[in-house]
Design a protein around this nucleic acid. Structure first.
Lengths: 115, 115
DNA sequence: TTGTTATTGCATCTCAGTTGCATTACTTTT
DNA sequence: AAAAGTAATGCAACTGAGATGCAATAACAA
């Protein structure tokens, strides 16, 4: 039910949004816990938006030639909407460091707001 | 004074850390406001850590052939320390979108924790 | 000195996210 | 079917980062 809010798209939803969307049907805490469960099950993945809010989106399996563990996300500075960017980002090399994952957020204007 | 906590390095400090470090000398609110001012003056820049905390570091002017507006940061998953990565990341192309800036965080193990 | 503006302190608020605990729903076992 | 165990939900309260309003002090200018 919560899952169906994500449709099949690359569209991401903030937790705050989801809590509000389901406030008549279910408790805030439940929404948080369902999201966590769906993430553990590999149905969803989460990331942090520009406003430091938690966002969720459908999990997409990475390409085999995947270079970043986490794909980048885009967030519109005007409408606030966010989505996945189906692209790989090369991991920068940092001497004597090991990089395991990444949080990559690109900010700008989305198609709707540019139109 | 707050500024001097950053030395001249690429080392970043979380606001929470700075508030604690200066709690005898100055008020929490003042720390927040000084940091904001230093950011406006171009002395510091800020980003979001993996734990969704606000971090600050010295501002480094970008190269002329700069491709990302914001350089990436690294955060150690073990000790939590964070630093700037002096590297440019190519901006991915997203059809019909305009990308202005980015929040790029790579997570892994730092030199100290690997040693 | 007096008037003006910038800086700090303190208290309070906001709000996302978490936790503890009781309650309900759902399974499994006898 | 009843009892026992496990998972899912609701509710209230808590936590902690960050923001805000306002009064008090400091710095500066006329």
């Amino acid at each position: 039910m919560v899952l169906s809010a994500f449709e099949n798209s690359r569209r991401a939803l903030s937790v705050v949004d989801l809590v509000k969307r389901f406030e008549t049907e279910m408790n805030k805490t439940t929404v948080y816990r369902v999201l966590e469960r769906l993430q553990d099950d590999g149905e969803l993945h989460s990331f942090t938006g520009k406003d430091r809010l938690k966002w969720f989106a459908k999990y997409h399996k990475p390409d085999s030639n995947n270079t970043t563990m986490t794909h980048p996300h885009f967030q519109c500075q005007d409408c606030g909407k966010s989505k996945c960017i189906p692209v790989d980002i090369a991991i920068p090399s940092l001497p004597n460091h090991r990089i395991d994952s990444s949080h990559l957020l690109f900010i700008g204007q989305c198609d709707d707001c540019l139109a």
